[in-house]
């Protein structure tokens, strides 16, 4: 059997797509100063709603829009919790994950009478979303480092007081980019449903967390983050081929083990946004 082939590289791109969407999403949040580990749940919510809307409406495009919408809603809730209610970012994200995990089982029972999976639903050509991703990665890179808006975003994450002094609304900026993060997570979820043609509760299966890892490995920059996500996609593709040779449980560990190894080796030189995870409290005049 030919384990390494061009085909493998193509499969890897497909497997990397949801990870890269999440990585790109997390990048915007963290650049603005918000940690969002709820990306796992946001992607799952996107997939779930895409499945449900596709089931009832029969329109894969409407499903896509709904996935983006629910992602935005969760990103908004997360931002309100982090920015205004001053919740611990990791904890608020974990709450989103738990809530969506419950909803995924509950709603699949209600809609399809199966616990945690759907019937097959109409889907788009998943390559549409792969191409969209590639475009977005390049746009994000230019946006972040070549535009005034990108600079403002970076200042909010690095030095919110300075941003505030310069007349940038720190709170609104954080909320806005958190909503963008949610939208990208929704796209990750929609991709998974369009790729498989159905929803399953385990379909995100840690890819959200791996997306965070990819973003960290990519040093908070869009193109490197995409490349890191691609590496995970490649390992994921490789492990599927290896399932004939070694037990599937063992090969399935590969992406998770890789994440740990990579995080252990590269984080030392990461340029973490200085105000990441810290609430900004505007001085009362």
């Amino acid at each position: 059997m030919d384990v390494l082939s061009l085909d493998l590289l193509v499969v890897a791109l497909r497997l990397a797509t949801p990870v890269a969407f999440v990585a790109l999403g997390e990048l915007f949040s963290e650049r603005a100063g918000i940690i969002n580990i709820g990306v796992e749940g946001s992607a799952l919510a996107g997939a779930l709603i895409a499945g449900i809307v596709a089931h009832y409406s029969g329109s894969a495009w409407l499903a896509l829009a709904a996935a983006v919408g629910i992602g935005m809603l969760l990103g908004f809730i997360h931002a309100i919790w982090c920015v205004y209610l001053r919740a611990n970012h990791v904890v608020a994200g974990a709450a989103v994950n738990i809530l969506v995990a419950g909803l995924a089982l509950f709603l699949t029972v209600l809609v399809w009478d199966w616990r945690g999976r759907s019937a097959s639903v109409v889907s788009l050509d998943p390559w549409i979303l792969v191409w969209l991703l590639l475009v977005l990665v390049v746009v994000a890179q230019v946006f972040l480092f070549r535009t005034r808006w990108g600079l403002r975003l970076r200042v909010v994450g690095e030095h919110p007081q300075a941003a505030d002094t310069a007349g940038i609304n720190v709170y609104r900026t954080r909320v806005a980019y958190s909503v963008l993060t949610g939208a990208l997570c929704g796209l990750a979820g929609a991709f998974l449903v369009n790729n498989l043609g159905r929803f399953t509760a385990g379909m995100v299966g840690g890819r959200g967390f791996i997306g965070i890892a990819a973003m960290v490995v990519g040093n908070y920059k869009p193109i490197p983050a995409f490349l890191a996500a691609y590496l995970f996609g490649f390992v994921d593709a490789l492990q599927m081929r290896l399932q004939d040779v070694i037990p599937s449980e063992i090969s399935m560990m590969l992406p998770y083990v890789l994440t740990v190894i990579v995080l252990a080796g590269f984080l030392g030189k990461a340029n973490v946004p200085a105000a990441l995870g810290k609430p900004y409290i505007k001085e009362q005049g």
Partner: peptide, 13 residues
């Protein structure tokens, strides 16, 4: 589980 998630969401704020 949905109830649980909601309870946590409000407890952490």
């Amino acid at each position: 589980e949905v109830l649980q998630g909601l309870v946590i969401l409000f407890v952490v704020a």
